[in-house]
Simulated assay, not measured.
Amino acid sequence: MLTTADGESLRADRVVVATPAAAATRLLAQVGADVEAPAVRRARFAVLAVDGSELAAEPVGSGVLVAERTPELRAQAMTHYSAKWPWARVGGREVLRLSYPADLEPTAEQAIADASLLSGVTISPRQVAAFASVEWTAMPARIDPAARDRLLAAARQAGVDLVGAWVDGNGIAPVILGVDRVLR
């Protein structure tokens, strides 16, 4: 049983909050768990869908991180999305996600140049079936493990389980581990 701040009683076998941090903390406040939302940051990504490419050979595995900056390279990292998650490879199309500084909005030309440089495969603009530049204004920052434990304990005390990137870490795998944590 869960009791809201205005005294309403809610009956459920389990309550799981799987929202961004700001919404989760507002919901938790309504059931008496007064916690602070962890910091968020802005992030910028470019996504390329590439047809008929040598990328299918996965020349850099699931991706690369840029250790040393060069003037012609603006991306900070590249995830070969369809190598990391093969279900994303449809009809011979490869999907690449490039990470950029939050204040840089890459053009398709810049993303193609960066992807070519990072993968070692020359990608022509004709091969690009789709391009998107996406800003994430509330990307969860890493949360200190002790703060995370206190947050989860406060939610549990209020009768709520939490799941999401802001608690479990960015990416599909950490969130799946968070769901497993809640199901135990």
Rank of each mutant, 00 (worst) to 15 (best):
S53C: 00
M139A: 15
G7D: 02
A141H: 04
G159H: 08
F131Q: 04
L98D: 02
R126L: 11
D13W: 12
L151M: 13
L96D: 08
A88Y: 06
M139L: 15
A23W: 04
V40Q: 09
N170L: 14
V163W: 00
A24T: 13
R42H: 13
S9I: 14
P106V: 02
L98K: 07
D6G: 09
A173D: 14
A23D: 10
L96M: 10
G61A: 01
E58M: 11
V179Y: 00
R89F: 02
L27N: 04
Q30H: 08
V64E: 10
A12I: 09
S62N: 11
R41F: 03
R11G: 13
R44W: 04
L96F: 04
E72N: 02
T19L: 12
L177D: 15
G120P: 03
T122C: 01
A155R: 04
G159F: 09
Y100T: 02
V16F: 10
V179I: 11
L65R: 14
G159W: 02
A115L: 05
E105D: 14
A18H: 07
V66M: 09
V134W: 03
N170P: 05
E72M: 04
A173C: 05
Y100R: 00
A153R: 07
T107A: 03
D103W: 06
A43G: 06
T3M: 15
A132F: 08
E109K: 03
T70G: 12
M78G: 01
P86K: 07
A102L: 00
P101D: 15
R74C: 13
A141M: 06
G92F: 14
R148G: 03
T137M: 11
Q30G: 11
T70D: 08
L73G: 06
P20K: 12
L55R: 02
A146K: 06
R11S: 14
P174S: 07
T3F: 01
L151C: 09
W87M: 14
S82E: 05
E54C: 02
T79R: 14
L27F: 01
Q30P: 02
S99C: 03
L27Y: 05
A153L: 06
A56S: 10
E68V: 15
V175F: 05
H80E: 07
E135D: 11
D180P: 08
L27Q: 07
P20W: 06
D51A: 15
Q157A: 12
A12P: 13
A56V: 14
D6N: 14
A23G: 04
Y81D: 13
A111G: 08
A56H: 12
R126F: 09
T19M: 12
W85G: 09
L65F: 11
R142K: 04
Y100V: 00
A138K: 11
N170G: 10
Q157W: 05
R142L: 13
